[in-house]
Each structure stands twice: as structure tokens, then as C-alpha cells.
């Protein structure tokens, strides 16, 4: 990771985020207004896409179906979440079975293989607009930089969102024999900020 090319401070004290066991502090603070070339921004994007398309992220980044997926090395063949689960329009399963019925709220980490992953917040799907499962790099990039479809966020806002959402933190420390998302949370945040400073370039412009 070309962290040295990214003008993102890694030295600021941790924010007020609640950290799960084993987590380390991250920061989204900028040092000064730097410039990041489009080429470096596209390199950062390619790493962001590796993260966004990884099963730890994409399995719960599904569209309006509200049906999470089971995919990746620990699941064998790709298939919808077992038990006929759908999170509904609420995205938390309120219409059927709440995600939190099985994905309980805990600070105790994840050690048991095949048990439902848990963090210290209620489990939920990403918004339907952030429909990443099976999508191309261009499709995800276009969504993520479109304020109409990304919750009105700047790249800085996206980085801060990453800093504060414990379900996202879980992707890098999933436990239970699950493969973590690539790179690290801090590297991913740095990539998002670099991509933003480069003007949020996408592969096809």
C-alpha cells in the first residue's frame, strides 16, 4: 500500500469511536490540502473495489431484494443467506426476522465457526442504493461518488462513516474462520480519502 503517497495523517489520536476487542484506532483527519493525481486516485480506487467487492462487504450490500448473500471461501458455493432470510424494506428484518435475532449485540468478538457474526451494534443491511453484490468496479464507483445515491456524502464523509460503523470494522476482523476484507481498515480509509482528493475518478472516467 502506498501509504506514503497519501497525505493522510495516521498520527491523530483516536476519535470517540467504540473499539471492539483487538481493534486499533484509525483516523480520517487530513494534514493539509495535498494533491493526489488521477492516476494515484485510480490506483486507490482499484484497492477500494477489492474491498467493496469482497464477500465480507458485498454479502450485505445487496439491492432492493433485501436478501443477504452467503459467498466467499468459507461458504463454498454462492447462495442466498440460509433460513429464507430477507431484511425487507426496513433493512433490519423488522418485517420478518430481525437481523439482531441471531446477530446479537456483543463486545465479545467472534470465535465460533458458523455462528452468526456479531458486533456492538444492531446488525443490518447496507442501504439498497449501495447495491454492490456482483457489480462491476465502474458500477460501484459511479454509485459511491454520486451524492444522489450515496447518502449525500463526500469522500471525507465516506471515510468518517467507515471510521464509525462497527459492522464495517468487523469486515477486517470477522473471526470464526472467515476471510477478512483485504488491506486494513486504516489503509482503506486512507484510500477513500486519496480517491476523494483525486476527484473520485472512476475506471471509465
Amino acid at each position: 500500500m502506498k501509504a506514503k503517497t497519501l497525505a493522510v495523517a495516521a498520527l491523530i489520536a483516536a476519535t470517540a469511536t467504540t473499539w471492539a476487542a483487538g481493534e486499533t484506532a484509525t483516523t480520517t483527519a487530513e494534514t493539509e490540502a495535498p494533491s493526489v493525481s488521477v492516476a494515484d486516485g485510480l490506483e486507490a480506487w482499484s484497492r477500494i473495489y477489492e474491498v467493496a467487492s469482497h464477500p465480507r462487504c458485498s454479502n450485505c450490500h445487496v439491492g432492493e431484494s433485501g436478501i443477504p448473500m452467503w459467498s466467499g471461501p468459507s461458504y463454498g458455493k454462492t447462495r442466498p443467506h440460509g433460513m429464507n432470510i430477507a431484511a425487507g424494506e426496513s433493512r433490519i428484518g423488522a418485517e420478518f426476522v430481525t437481523c439482531a435475532t441471531c446477530h446479537t449485540r456483543s463486545t465479545q468478538g467472534n470465535t465460533v465457526a458458523h455462528a452468526a457474526p456479531r458486533v456492538d451494534m444492531d446488525w443490518q443491511l447496507a442501504p439498497a442504493q449501495a447495491d454492490w453484490f456482483g457489480r462491476t468496479s465502474q458500477e460501484i464507483c459511479s454509485q459511491l461518488r454520486d451524492p444522489e445515491r450515496n447518502g449525500g456524502r463526500t469522500a471525507q464523509d465516506i471515510a468518517e462513516h467507515l471510521d464509525h460503523d462497527l459492522i464495517l470494522h468487523w469486515a477486517w476482523d470477522p473471526g470464526g474462520g472467515r476471510e477478512p476484507a483485504p488491506y486494513s481498515l486504516q489503509e482503506h480509509i486512507a484510500d477513500v480519502m486519496a480517491w476523494g482528493m483525486a476527484g473520485m475518478p472512476c475506471p471509465n472516467g
Binding site: T98, A100, T101, C102, T104, S106, Q108, A116, R118
Partner: peptide
């Protein structure tokens, strides 16, 4: 193993006593 915690269904095999 389903029980309720404050009226909401929870799988009691997944909920740690301390939580």
C-alpha cells in the same frame, strides 16, 4: 432456543450472558 429479550425474539444460543 428462541426466547425474547424485552419482547424481541433472540436466539439464546447466540446471546452471551454478559451481553
Amino acid at each position: 432456543c428462541t426466547v425474547h429479550v424485552d419482547g424481541v425474539a433472540v436466539r439464546s444460543c447466540q446471546l452471551a450472558a454478559g451481553d
